[in-house]
Write a protein that binds this DNA or RNA. Structure first.
Lengths: 220, 220
DNA sequence: AAAAAAGTAAGTGTAAACCCTTATATTGAA
DNA sequence: TTCAATATAAGGGTTTACACTTACTTTTTT
């Protein structure tokens, strides 16, 4: 087992960020070399500290501004060997898949014990990824094989136009209003709605709104 | 300032719970006497340890099972002098009001720095409540004056019937389907929908779904 | 105890949402 | 580069949702 693991922590919640730092202080083989509250700060830190060795990044996923997905995608593009573990409150398959697509090597929940997090860090250093019930080996392997990192911003199977329409539906706009905003005919908006219902497996706009929240097309 | 503050921590996210414990270890005037992951455990701990002095409880609000609101309501009923501070990721006025209604003495966000949390704990011990931008003195005073704790489960201004209908709308049920489920006429369900739209300030069911999420009438 | 307010129930009418089909443009894969 | 798949665009027809109104009942306030 690697004796001195260099770790970077990213979490917008200071409580979590500072608490984690303290927790790792009790584990001498893991050294927190940097901690940040947002994606922008980590990206610039990595730019300014290219020489510094970093083994693992613990990346919060839900953050305002540049979120954990986007940050992970940018970082893995620049540093393909960087092992980034996602940290989230949500046990949501769409979130996990999206994170792995962005180049993540594992996914942890905040409900999990610190010992599991330590395990994940050690495993990701040794094997390159962290496998558990939520993230089976097959899934990781699938993403590694495909050499993904492409189209990651398209978090859903919806087109950009459809995503815009979903967001406007969530703002309680009618098809006519959406048509006026996007310079389309009301009928075109309605045919997009049809496709959206089909793709999101919804029966009506209630389902669309819930889908938008689960896939973070809107924030609450 | 009180020299030795006895603190209880409640948070389902082990990372936060254990991290906070470590953070408080560095502040000798605050002693963590108990920590729990859920409402049930705290309630039983208080029952079994009636003699033990507890000054402040830091209570996570979003927890599975018995949440922070319910737990706070039950605890303040049994121990009216207990100072419970709410801890949440969400800066949501409906959440704050509901928490104060349940007997909470302050509301903190997880993004806030540990120093602010320490301040809150000290202030709540000295003054009995914690005031900040989100929770102005007037609001706290309002709840203290009214000697609230009543009807707290009615988190919104919706009636039970209307809440049921909202939940069914979120399950993509039509008015006819809701009528069949609740043994009402379709027309009655529709008149409830009207009232719901009015009360929730919504234009259509998209607004109702978002309201339901923000007021935790459904979980995502 | 009376008055006011709000819940429950239900009707009519209109507008919007949803369902299905067709046509063209664009993109992606063989 | 041609074929296939999908996005975009838009139509008709049906169902559902929403707006407004009335009536009776229950709850709350004075």
């Amino acid at each position: 087992m690697k004796s001195n693991i260099k770790l970077v922590i990213v979490d917008d919640q200071m409580l979590v960020q500072q608490g984690m730092k303290k927790l790792f202080d009790a584990h001498s083989h893991i050294e927190v070399v940097y901690q940040a509250s947002n994606g922008i700060d980590v990206i610039s830190w990595f730019k300014e500290n290219k020489g510094i060795q970093v083994d693992v990044v613990l990346m919060d996923i839900q953050m305002p501004g540049m979120d954990g997905w986007e940050t992970t995608e940018l970082l893995t593009r620049k540093f393909p060997n960087l092992k980034i573990i996602g940290l989230s409150s949500y046990d949501n398959e769409a979130f996990i898949d999206r994170f792995l697509k962005c180049g993540g090597r594992g996914y942890l929940l905040k409900v999990q014990d610190i010992t599991e997090i330590i395990d994940a860090i050690e495993q990701v250093v040794e094997l390159g990824f962290y496998v558990n019930e939520r993230v089976p080996l097959s899934k990781i392997q699938g993403f590694i094989d495909k050499k993904v990192i492409q189209n990651t911003f398209n978090t859903t199977d919806l087109t950009n136009q459809q995503i815009k329409i979903v967001q406007l539906i969530c703002q309680e706009k009618t098809s006519q209003e959406i048509a006026d905003i996007l310079f389309l005919s009301k009928k075109t908006v309605e045919s997009h709605r049809d496709k959206i219902l089909l793709k999101t497996n919804s029966k009506n706009m209630a389902g669309i709104v819930l889908y938008a929240i689960k896939h973070q097309l809107i924030s609450i």
